[in-house]
Design a protein around this nucleic acid. Structure first.
Length: 610
DNA sequence: GCCGTTTTCGGCCCGACTGTTTTCAGTCG
C-alpha cells in the first residue's frame, strides 16, 4: 500500500485517540477511527486525489477530505497540532497499557500530571495515586502488571504458533464432559498473519466445568477473568486466550460475532439494524415494537450523553427484563448472513475491505482453497539446505495427492549451499527416474535462483533452459536503495527463464523488514512478462502479504502458493499460504498451481525460445 | 464527523467483566 495512505491513516488515528482522551464527542472519535482505516487501506494513492476523489473514500466527508488536503499542502493538520499541543504524546502512549483507556489516562494527566509510562510507574512507586477517584488498590496492581506486559514486546505470535496452540486448547476442551462443540474464532480463523490473542468458542451443558478445564491447563500462567460465559487466561508464552461459552442455539451468531473483524461486525450489525433486527453474539432478534416507539426519547438521551462523553445505556437491562424481541435465527453462520440478505462470507474476507459490498452485489470471489492446489512449486531437499531426501519429499508429495510437484534446490550463488552444475544435472536424472515410480504425479525439475544485486541470476540462458521451472529470489543485499532494489527485481522478471519471484519482499515477520522496493513497478513487470509472484506459505514469511496480493491482482498478476518446504512437515504449511491468498481475494484462476498441468506448462514456457 | 432503498437530521453495534462503586463508569473485544 502506498506510503502516503499509511501516513494519513496514522495521523487520523492519532486524532481519533486525542479526541477520545480529551473527552470529545465519542462518535466523532469513532468516525476518525473509521476514516483512518479506510484511508490506510484505500487502493489509490491518496496524495494524488482531489477533494472529490477523497470524498469517494468511505467515511471521508468534507471535513476529513479538507484535513487530508491540508496535510499534503502544508505537511501537517492544524487540528491535530492543536490537540498535540494540549496533550503530551506520552499520554496517548498510556492508553497502550491494558486496562488503561482514554478516560483514565486523562484523569492521570489532569490530576497527577502523569504524561508517560515512566511517570506512571514513578507515581505508582511513590504512592501518588492514592485518593484518586477510580484508582483503588486493584487498579494500581493492574496498571503495574499492564506496564510489565507492554514492556515484554508486542506479544503477537505468528500464525503457525497460534494455530498449534489453538488446536491444543480446542482439543483439550472438546474432551471435557458436557462440551458439545468447541472451535477457535477470532483473527486466527481469519488467518491474519500474526495473532494477538486466541478466541475460543464452546457450547457446553455445564459452563463451569469447561471454564475450570481451561484455567486448569498446564499452559496457563495467569487467570485474567473468570465468569460463567467468559473466561480469560494468559499462557506461559504470554498469549491471552478468551473462552466464551454460548447456548447451542446461539452457535452461528456467536461464531460470526467472535470471528470478527470488529469492522466487519459493525457493518453486519448496521445492516441488521436497518432491517429492524438486532444482531448480537446470542442471535439475530426482532426489535420489539415499544422500543421503536421509544426511539426518539432514547435517542435524545443518548445524544446528550454522547456530548458529555458518557456512554449509552447498555441493552443488558432489556435482556434481563425480557423486553428483547424474538430470536429469528442463529444456529449457523449461513442462516445469520442469509437472513440479513447476504451470502455466507469466508472468514478470511471479513475485514471490511469491500466484502460486504461484494456480497450484496453477488460478486464475492470464489476464493482459492488448499484443496484447489494441485502441486507445490517451491521445495528443497538435502542436496542443499533441506533436511529430507528427494525420495522422501516426493513420497510426501504423492501422499498429498498432488498432480505435479517441483523440486527447486538452491543455485550455486548461494555459496553456502555448494551447488554445482554436475550436482544439479545428477539430481535431474534422479527426478526423471523417480517420476516413473509415481504415474499420477508429474515431477518438475526446477531451481531457486538468486537474484544478484544487479538483477542477474546464477546460470546462463542455455543452462537455465534445461529446467522445467525457475523460482528466483532475493537472498542477500537487502539494504539496497529503493531504486536499485526495484531495478533488480524488475530485471529478474524480464529474464525469460524466471517463472516465479520467490518471497518477493524477503521479510521475516518480526525479524526482518521487507526490502524497500517499488512494488507497483514489480507488479507491472510481472503482469507484462508473465512472471508469477509467490505467496510463500511459511508462517514466518507470508510473503507476499494479503494487502500486497490485493494490489498485485489489480495489475493482472498471477500467483504461486508455495511452501518453500525444507522438510516433509513443511508441506503442511500450505494452508497458511492458501489463507493469505484468500485474504488477498485470490480465486483459483489467479493461482498457477491450481491449474491443470497443460495450462501450467504453457505459462512456464514464458519467453523461452524452445 | 459521516451517512441515507424509512431519513439531508438524528442517529451512530452490543455485551461481558472489573473495580469501586451503592447504581455504574471504564475498558475491552
Amino acid at each position: 500500500m502506498a506510503r502516503p495512505n499509511e501516513q494519513v491513516g496514522a495521523l487520523l488515528q492519532e486524532y481519533a485517540d486525542l479526541v477520545a482522551i480529551t473527552g470529545g464527542d465519542a462518535y466523532r472519535a469513532r468516525v476518525y477511527e473509521k476514516a483512518a482505516r479506510s484511508v490506510a487501506g484505500y487502493h489509490l494513492d491518496v496524495s494524488t486525489l482531489d477533494a472529490a476523489g477523497l470524498r469517494a473514500i468511505p467515511n471521508v466527508g468534507t471535513s476529513i477530505a479538507a484535513k487530508v488536503t491540508e496535510y499534503f499542502r502544508t505537511g501537517q493538520i492544524a487540528a491535530v497540532e492543536e490537540l498535540r499541543a494540549k496533550i503530551p504524546a506520552g499520554v496517548r502512549e498510556l492508553t497502550e497499557i491494558p486496562t488503561l483507556g482514554p478516560r483514565k489516562a486523562m484523569v492521570l494527566y489532569d490530576e497527577r500530571g502523569i504524561a508517560s509510562v515512566q511517570d506512571l510507574l514513578d507515581a505508582l512507586d511513590a504512592g501518588r495515586l492514592a485518593g484518586l477517584k477510580g484508582f483503588g488498590p486493584r487498579t494500581e496492581e493492574n496498571l503495574r502488571h499492564g506496564i510489565d506486559l507492554l514492556r515484554q514486546s508486542g506479544g503477537r505470535v505468528d500464525l503457525g504458533v497460534a494455530t498449534e496452540l489453538a488446536e491444543e486448547i480446542v482439543g483439550a476442551l472438546s474432551k471435557v464432559p458436557g462440551c458439545v462443540r468447541c472451535t477457535y474464532a477470532g483473527s486466527l480463523r481469519r488467518m491474519r498473519e500474526t495473532v494477538g490473542d486466541l478466541d475460543v468458542l464452546a457450547v457446553s451443558k455445564n459452563p463451569g466445568t469447561i471454564m475450570d478445564a481451561l484455567t486448569g491447563l498446564d499452559l496457563v500462567a495467569e487467570v485474567i477473568a473468570r465468569g460463567n460465559t467468559k473466561t480469560s487466561i494468559r499462557t506461559t508464552a504470554g498469549l491471552q486466550v478468551d473462552l466464551r461459552v454460548v447456548p447451542p442455539e446461539s452457535w452461528g451468531a456467536a461464531l460470526q460475532y467472535f470471528t470478527g473483524s470488529k469492522a466487519h461486525n459493525v457493518r453486519t450489525r448496521e445492516i441488521a439494524v436497518r432491517q429492524g433486527l438486532k444482531l448480537s453474539e446470542y442471535g439475530l432478534f426482532t426489535v420489539p415494537r415499544d422500543e421503536h416507539d421509544g426511539d426518539d426519547e432514547q435517542g435524545e438521551q443518548r445524544g446528550q450523553r454522547g456530548r458529555k462523553g458518557g456512554r449509552r445505556r447498555p441493552a443488558a437491562e432489556a435482556v434481563e427484563t425480557g423486553e428483547t424481541g424474538e430470536l429469528v435465527v442463529s444456529k449457523t453462520e449461513e442462516e445469520v448472513y442469509e437472513r440479513i440478505g447476504l451470502p455466507w462470507i469466508p472468514p478470511t474476507l471479513r475485514e471490511d475491505r469491500g466484502e460486504i459490498e461484494a456480497a450484496r452485489a453477488g460478486t464475492l470471489p470464489k476464493v482459492v482453497t488448499e484443496k484447489d492446489i494441485r502441486g507445490d512449486l517451491h521445495t528443497h531437499t538435502d542436496l542443499t539446505d533441506g533436511v529430507a531426501t528427494l525420495a522422501e519429499m516426493v513420497a510426501a508429495a504423492a501422499a498429498r495427492g498432488y498432480a505435479y510437484y517441483a523440486i527447486t534446490d538452491h543455485a550455486p550463488n548461494l555459496f553456502m549451499q555448494r551447488m554445482t552444475d554436475a550436482k544439479m544435472l545428477s539430481q535431474r536424472d534422479q527426478v526423471r527416474a523417480l517420476g516413473e515410480r509415481y504415474p499420477k504425479l508429474t515431477l518438475l525439475h526446477g531451481t531457486e535462483l538468486n537474484i544478484d544485486p544487479g538483477g542477474e541470476v546464477d546460470w546462463p540462458e542455455d543452462f537455465l533452459a534445461g529446467f522445467d521451472i525457475c523460482v528466483a529470489s532475493v537472498h542477500s543485499h537487502f539494504n539496497q536503495s529503493r531504486a536499485e532494489m526495484t531495478r533488480r527485481i524488475v530485471r529478474a522478471c524480464e529474464n525469460p527463464a524466471v517463472n516465479v519471484i520467490g518471497h518477493p519482499t524477503a521479510r521475516l515477520i518480526g525479524r526482518r523488514p521487507p526490502v524497500d522496493v517499488d512494488l507497483e513497478a514489480v507488479y507491472e513487470a510481472c503482469a507484462r512478462t508473465s512472471t508469477a509472484l509467490e505467496v510463500n506459505a511459511s508462517p514466518d514469511r507470508l510473503d507476499l502479504n494479503d494487502e500486497n496480493i490485493l494490489a498485485a491482482k489489480r495489475h493482472g498478476v498471477k500467483f504461486a502458493i508455495n511452501t518453500d518446504a525444507h522438510a516433509v512437515a513443511h508441506l503442511d504449511l500450505l494452508r497458511f499460504g492458501a489463507g493469505t491468498a484468500q485474504r488477498g481475494w485470490l480465486t483459483p484462476d489467479d493461482v498457477i498451481n491450481t491449474w491443470p498441468l497443460r495450462r501450467l506448462r504453457t505459462f512456464l514456457r514464458k519467453g523461452r525460445k524452445r
